[in-house]
Design a protein around this nucleic acid. Structure first.
Lengths: 152, 152
DNA sequence: CAAAATCAGTTTCATTATGAAACCGATTGC
DNA sequence: GCAATCGGTTTCATAATGAAACTGATTTTG
């Protein structure tokens, strides 16, 4: 599916990531999965997504190794969708999106859900930094392009 | 534009973020903008996006305050698209996507572009942590929902 | 146990978004 | 001044999406 232009061969990791999860629903499904949802009906109700599209997205996310179907968790005959390790590694992406949204998409006093440490209740934050731990901003960083020799 | 289902009113910051930048092209445009691109033609050539769609996305991103048009940077009569502060704040999102892509979307020895500190050449990394600086993973964190009283 | 309800999809069909290409006016280069 | 380029817009075909009906399994209920 997903015709457009596949960025699979792009040497830019961001582009490949967007190719894998950059459509409108996938990350919302992943968000719900982080939030503990696992059943078709849960996702459908939570997101208000059309069933056929949800079906397609779950299939695609599973094919890409971001979700996996486990036979039955509560003994029931129906399967569940769970995040794989690869899917759980999207955690920083979710946090980054959340943090940006909090900063820029809410009115000053407006309520929003918060991501907190379970044990302490502290807000979860995100820090961009160098290998040796110094915080770094966009201005001090640069994308090193690979000389595009490999793909040919 | 963007008909679907607007998540603007959602109390989840991730959802609102995706509502603002979650379509297929927007983040790729932002990525290119981080990479120094600013002209219509540059984006178009870099992404291979259809001109009408690019036109629409640039307009939308501008309307949302992520890009802004500056009259003329090099003296030319044509305008440029630049990231606003809000747009630059998407930096962690880009880093997060990049990092995930590097981890999971490239074969072991496969070449990819790298984001490095300009001065030192060190790879830029990303850390999810608590307010007081302790690293934290998805398992130890929890989304606190707002009791949905505000929107009514 | 039988009937009703729910779940997890799939199919069908109308609507919307996307992509390719042609077109166009305003620069820019020569 | 003439041709080429830039930055779009329009038009039209195609692909993706959404709503709703339908289906075959499971649960639930009485």
């Amino acid at each position: 599916m997903v015709k457009r232009k596949s960025l699979k061969g792009d040497y830019c990791p961001s582009a490949r990531s967007l190719d894998a999860i950059g459509d409108w629903w996938s990350l919302l499904i992943v968000r719900d999965a982080f939030d503990g949802m696992s059943r078709f009906g849960e996702f459908q109700k939570s997101l208000g997504i059309a069933r056929n599209i949800l079906s397609d997205r779950l299939r695609t996310l599973t094919a890409r190794g971001i979700l996996e179907t486990v036979p039955a968790a509560d003994g029931g005959a129906r399967q569940e969708y769970r995040l794989t390790a690869k899917g759980r590694d999207l955690f920083p992406v979710m946090v980054a999106l959340r943090q940006w949204g909090e900063q820029h998409l809410f009115a000053p006093g407006e309520k929003h859900s918060r991501l907190v440490e379970r044990s302490s209740g502290q807000t979860v934050r995100l820090l961009v930094r160098t290998e040796d731990g110094r915080p770094i901003g966009a201005e001090e960083s640069v994308i090193l392009k690979v000389p595009e020799a490999e793909e040919s």
